[in-house]
Simulated assay, not measured.
Amino acid sequence: QNFLSLQSQLEGTENRISVARRDFILAVERYNTEIRTFPGRLWHAVMYSDLPIRATFEATTPDADKAPEVKF
């Protein structure tokens, strides 16, 4: 019973990490697009020139963005 509960909690944690990773990647992509296009490029040059372009990341293994299935 405890082990099944632990598996369920781990699955939920992995799902939350996956969602947070996806949200971060989307936010970085939006930021980079904004500062590279007009008029965001002008605002960035004038007001935020000290902020660098952020690195974007992608999953390196197949299905890395999916949590593993729990089998009982």
Rank of each mutant, 00 (worst) to 15 (best):
V19R: 05
A67S: 09
D65N: 01
P68T: 03
P62M: 01
R30T: 14
T60R: 04
A27T: 09
P52T: 07
P68F: 02
A20D: 06
D65I: 00
N2Q: 08
T60P: 00
L10Y: 03
Y48H: 13
N15Q: 14
G40H: 02
I17M: 13
K66M: 04
D23H: 11
G40V: 04
F24H: 08
R36C: 15
G12K: 09
E69M: 04
T33E: 15
Q7F: 10
Y48V: 06
K71C: 08
S49C: 09
H44M: 05
V46D: 02
I25G: 08
V28C: 06
V70P: 06
G12Q: 13
R16C: 01
G40L: 08
Q7V: 08
E29Y: 05
Q1D: 12
M47W: 10
D50P: 00
D23I: 10
Y31P: 02
N15P: 00
T13H: 11
P68V: 04
W43E: 11
Q1R: 11
I35L: 14
L26P: 00
K66E: 05
N2L: 06
R21I: 04
E14V: 09
S18K: 12
L51H: 04
T56Q: 03
L42W: 13
E29G: 11
N32R: 02
M47I: 04
I53G: 02
E69Y: 00
E69L: 08
R36N: 15
N32P: 08
T13R: 10
R36H: 15
R54S: 08
L26E: 13
T56E: 07
F3R: 09
P39L: 13
A27I: 01
F72N: 13
L10R: 04
T61S: 04
Q7E: 13
R21S: 05
R36G: 15
A67F: 02
R22W: 02
